[in-house]
Design a protein around this nucleic acid. Structure first.
Lengths: 227, 227
DNA sequence: TCAAAAGTGTTAAGTTTACACCCATGA
DNA sequence: TCATGGGTGTAAACTTAACACTTTTGA
């Protein structure tokens, strides 16, 4: 068999990417979902997705699709997995690679989001979704939870300066469980790459809370993280 | 835009699966690798792979490809991830989904393995591989290590009856690190789904070692596992 | 009789959890 | 002056890690 035939005798497929986009605002973990104003499945809720093109890697397709919706580049993304059931998309056979993204809601382009008819939805109030998108979210959420407990990815969801109460609320939303304030702060105090600044946030309380910052350079020295 | 056009304007791709096949024998963790006697990259080492076909899911393609090489069905497999760099396969653009499989070497069909020019290679002595297969193995190994510490998947690599020394050697191979015998056995003793049998294995020592068995029904009751 | 693998408990160190009050401030 | 969120330490429970000798038996 020639090298050429080795490929030629096999079928080709549409390959898509779907993005599970996490955002955090006012103590709530949200997902950015589309209320589809296009076919197929017009009117239904879905993840933001798109097709892989000839001259882009699958990873880059995910970045492009995310940027089409949010205007953001350089966003933290991680592959969740590939969904390849024959009938997962009833219109055509499409193999889809899911990615999750973590971003700061306030940095996203609100106009673009509106144009796409996309909405931030509380992670505990996700509506029914097309195809296997519910399963994708489930897997993404589990992966993200595990990763967030062992690597400092949660800061992607926060502004550069944040209070410890914000950080704790975020972890409570990720884990879906309350965390003891003193134990939490004890653990944070041990990570010297979570740096106290001299700035105070007065928006959340009368007394004001110290603002902290994640210092990636310091983190890279030991790379130990556990919450 | 019509529903039809929605798909039609997009390109299609070859989609492959590649299998990272783990086996355990005589205290060693091995991978089943091909010394390719076919194009492309004839003569080079690679993972066993194959193309996804029209009427099969991606998961089923992985199962089929594994079974073509080993004769085995109902093997424990898990998706590692999708590798989609544009030039990852220099012959043609191919998007590949990697899976790892855990099986008992002695149950595999030795004739089929030989026909494919495949060999069991110690995991610490893996040769250079084609394309991005080295990276696939790296990821698979990490995933498997994490999974093996929190779910009873290691038994897939052992015969139905096994000694505690075998089990310990297996975990030492998975973690690449020595384990304290008494602490290990203490942990095993707490898992009452790892059942002592009345059988003795005399092959590994003069004295003989008690054979144990994994009882999945008992495991399913509490599903707690941690090694 | 001895070499080789099987089997067996205790203690110290470290980690995790539970828990309650004072502080600063703006309204 | 009081309601609100910010900030702080200790002790008990639990988990993990370190460690060495006796047993059995076939060669």
């Amino acid at each position: 068999m020639s090298t050429k035939n080795y490929y030629l005798q096999n079928p080709k497929f549409y390959v898509a990417v779907d993005c599970i986009i996490f955002g955090f605002n006012e103590g709530e973990l949200n997902l950015l979902l589309l209320k589809r104003n296009f076919e197929p499945a017009r009117g239904a809720w879905s993840l933001m997705g798109g097709f892989v093109q000839e001259q882009e890697s699958v990873d880059n397709a995910a970045k492009r699709v995310l940027s089409e919706l949010t205007g953001l580049t350089d966003v933290y993304m991680e592959q969740v997995g590939t969904f390849g059931r024959v009938d997962r998309d009833p219109g055509e056979r499409v193999i889809s690679v899911a990615y999750y993204a973590l971003l700061n809601i306030n940095e996203s382009d609100k106009e673009l989001v509106e144009q796409h008819n996309a909405f931030w939805v509380n992670i505990n109030e996700v509506p029914s979704l097309v195809f296997d998108h519910t399963e994708m979210i489930e897997q993404a959420r589990n992966l993200m939870r595990i990763k967030a407990s062992t690597a400092p990815i949660s800061f992607q969801l926060l502004p550069k300066l944040f209070t410890l109460t914000q950080l704790q609320k975020l972890y409570e939303a990720i884990y879906g469980d309350a965390i003891d304030k003193r134990n939490f702060r004890k653990r944070i105090a041990e990570m010297n790459y979570i740096e106290k600044t001299s700035k105070i946030d007065k928006s959340g309380s009368k007394r004001g809370a110290v603002l902290y910052r994640f210092n990636n350079k310091v983190y890279c020295k030991d790379k130990k993280f556990k919450i």
